[in-house]
Nucleic acid binder design. Structure first.
Lengths: 193, 193
DNA sequence: CTGAATTTTCAGTAATTTCTGAAATAGACG
DNA sequence: CGTCTATTTCAGAAATTACTGAAAATTCAG
């Protein structure tokens, strides 16, 4: 591995973390390298810096492209492919969330839904289905929230994060306002949209 | 594998998902089995239902205990260990979040901090550090938010989720309220805590 | 077209991870 | 203490996953 110590520490860490996720060490290292590189890199740059085979780099880049985590660039009068990561870390986070949802959450929801369609054969299956329904409900609540907040522009999202639990304080204020509103229309039962 | 088709589909899916995370197939299957079981199971129950070796189950249970995902129960006048998962799916989610943070996020933050302490040797390292600082900032924002909302009771948290992006609408209301307040004290510069 | 540069594919090998069976350990109970 | 039951440990086998080198495919300038 042909990297400065500072860079190497980062790249090695992402290699480790990569194996802890579904992606392998080399893929993690390639990503880390592209993330911190000042300029787009071509495959041979990566081969040289990481000391792995050309074919391994090719496969790793392909996987990163499948994850939408890298951008392909072309320099004028150079046939080689150059790669970068998006500049905006929030955008990277969004992509990561979206891809993990697609790979992990959606298939799980679909399996749960399928099983919940079936009729339980006995008390054990009845209980199992009830548990699965609980899990399904939780995941659906989370993904509904996610689908909702992912539409926010980044600065709004950051603001929301910054508020954290203090949002509930504001909600209390809102509840007071709403309840004052209710005093004028005490028969109303539903909530405001 | 000695399970009803309905149960088996669930268990097999969690086995697959397990390998997609850091945990292995058997561990995923054991967890799934305990999650849907109506009663606590002992190791030999699991051996029988999953058709894997006793030692494999022992190791799998140990890993699940390390993740705080299973509870150990003892029945009166029975020396065997029985295992369950917590009933409350929100509690399970919290545990999962906490453990993954501990294993994935905290080490990353610590590596980033360590690298950011060093002095960059050249322009490349300067740029690399700037990128790492961006990543560090993002992760810190996310974990600050997480540390904040994890303290909420479950019903509050569920309410927040239910609101989703609509929270920003309420924030706009709040902003108006605050700005009305400002008209009385126009020199104030900071924000309310 | 040709051919040089670049990238991809893939069969085989290496490395890693998972799983097992046998043996060791732990502890309850007479 | 010895025995019986339950659990853990661990060395090696089995399975899976990652990696490589060689060959094939693709791309594009001339």
């Amino acid at each position: 591995m042909n990297l400065s110590p500072l860079t190497q520490a980062f790249v090695l860490h992402f290699g480790e973390m990569g194996s802890r996720w579904g992606i392998n060490r080399t893929v993690g290292q390639i990503y880390a390298l592209l993330y911190i590189a000042a300029e787009p890199l071509c495959a041979d740059d990566i081969v040289e810096k990481l000391g792995v085979s050309r074919s391994n780099v090719s496969m790793g880049l392909r996987e990163l492209q499948a994850w939408n985590l890298v951008l392909l660039k072309h320099l004028p009068s150079d046939r080689r492919d150059f790669f970068t990561t998006p500049d905006d870390v929030w955008q990277i986070l969004r992509t990561l969330a979206e891809e993990r949802k697609k790979r992990e959450v959606d298939p799980t929801l679909s399996v749960l839904r399928e099983i919940l369609m079936q009729k339980p054969a006995d008390e054990g299956e009845r209980h199992a289905q009830a548990r699965m329904a609980e899990m399904h409900g939780l995941i659906e609540q989370l993904t509904t929230w996610y689908d909702d907040v992912k539409k926010l522009e980044t600065d709004r999202l950051a603001m929301l994060l910054g508020l954290g639990a203090r949002v509930t304080k504001i909600l209390e204020v809102k509840d007071r306002i709403v309840s004052i509103g209710r005093q004028r229309a005490p028969t109303e039962k539903g909530r405001a949209p």
